[in-house]
Every structure is written in structure tokens, then in C-alpha cells.
Design a protein around this nucleic acid. Structure first.
Lengths: 118, 118
DNA sequence: TCATATACCGAATTTTTATTCCATACTTGA
DNA sequence: TCAAGTATGGAATAAAAATTCGGTATATGA
């Protein structure tokens, strides 16, 4: 099987456990997009995160479903339709996402000066 | 130069900015080790994080100094001596680290059952 | 004398992630 | 009829991150 994580999550330490669930490039953004609880179709998620390659979002969504952070419903229709929604467990991560969002907003200037263009 | 990050931090969105500063495998753990503010010599840091390859810690410490999360003092002695300490900016990330630690402790069981050995 | 400790870094390799491209199979609207 | 949208995934490739190994130079203690 392609794209199977060798170590799904890191159980060695609680900090690494949490990090390993969200450290992939787009997972925190996916949680942020799904935060309201409203189900979202994958095409919508792709549109909301245009910087991310669709294939990557698919893979990360799949992992998040496996980890229990996100729930998926597939409607047996044609053309195919499916929905992703944040799980109760996933919601418990939102305060962390919030703090990271706030931190990023608060300290953006420092890094813009340091690493921004020109 | 070896090990230069292509994009030092991600300025596209505040969430990605914060994540990009700490998502490397050991950075959050390094911040946790340095949390009290007491300077630590690199050999001590290596001992506290024995799972991490020393070379990786060196590299990640260097990046964290560059990003301003950690400060470094080099004593011009032989044998060489140096110290790392968390910066004021780095300290502002500790509430996030704390929340991730708590989350990991609270939800450890779920993932132990799911992914733990036997 | 010799192993150990010190801090660091280059280089090569391995592992993990991310990206790109193509394919499926059916619907709708132009 | 034909392009575009729908969800998904295989496969190949590229890029990034982590790991391993070896080297620098000097001091200390056995």
C-alpha cells in the first residue's frame, strides 16, 4: 500500500504524540477549515487550501480519519459525493489550533521582517 | 552550506507560520526542556532527549537560534563550552507546548489502544 | 598513553513527505 | 459531442528531514 506511515503516531512522549498527529504540512489547516462542524466536501477543502496539492490533502484527510480526528461519510451516488467533518476528538484540538493562530498573528511582523521578500 | 532550509518559515498563513517554527521532530521537545529559563549545555540536551540523534538536535538548535526562539552563548574556552537558553520570544510559545502536553496526556489511552504494541 | 568528553560540522545515506501526472467512471451543462 | 466536475488512488519523482559516520582540536583523568 502506498503512503502508509511507518509509525502512525509517536507514543513515546505526550508532546510528540500530539505533534505527530498534526505536524504534517496541512493537517492543522484542515482542522481549522473544518472547525465549525459543518461537513465539507473534498472539492471545497481543496478550494479553501489552494496552496496544497489535492493529492496531499486526500492522503492527510485519510490519515486524520484513521487517527479519529475527522469523520467521513460517503454517499453511494454518481457522480460520487463524500463529506468530511471534524470529530469530537478533533474538536478538542481546536484550542491548540486557536493558540497557534493567535501566536502567528501576533508575531507575524518579526518573521516578515526577517524572512519576507525584499 | 548543508542543511539550509529553503523557506525558513511559512509566511503564507499565521497557522502555518507557527507550525513551521516547531514542526520539526524535536523542536517542541527542546522548548520544553529549556522551559525553566536555565541555560543548558548541548551535551545535557542530548542526554535529556536520548531518542534524538545528536546531529539533528544540533541542526534544530541552530535553526531555533536563527528563528529567535533560543539564545546561544559560546564561551571561548578549551574544551569548548556553550549554553542554550530559551528566549523571550520562545517563552511565548510555552502555553502552546503546555496545551499539547496536556492534550497528549489526556488522550494517550486512545492511541495506545489503537497503535500500541499488542 | 589512551579512552573519554567537549562542541560542532561536512558528507553520504536512508527515510519520510510532498508533488505531479495519469487513470477510473459517471453526470451535467454548453 | 465534448469539456468540466465529481472522488479517489496508483505510480513515479522531487524535495525535505532525519540518521549515521567520521573528522576537528584540546583537556582531563585513569
Amino acid at each position: 500500500m502506498a503512503y502508509e506511515k511507518k509509525i502512525p503516531v509517536d507514543l513515546d512522549c505526550p508532546l510528540r504524540l500530539t505533534m505527530s498527529l498534526i505536524e504534517s504540512k496541512w493537517k492543522s489547516c484542515i482542522l481549522d477549515e473544518l472547525r465549525t462542524g459543518t461537513p465539507m466536501r473534498p472539492s471545497k477543502i481543496h478550494k479553501c487550501l489552494p496552496e496544497a496539492a489535492p493529492r496531499v490533502l486526500d492522503i492527510q484527510l485519510k490519515e486524520m480519519v484513521e487517527d479519529g480526528l475527522v469523520e467521513k461519510t460517503v454517499f453511494p451516488e454518481l457522480p460520487p459525493r463524500s463529506e468530511y467533518r471534524i470529530s469530537e476528538l478533533g474538536k478538542t484540538l481546536l484550542p491548540i489550533i486557536d493558540q497557534m493562530l493567535n501566536w502567528g498573528r501576533t508575531h507575524y511582523d518579526i518573521f516578515e521582517k526577517k524572512y519576507g521578500k525584499q
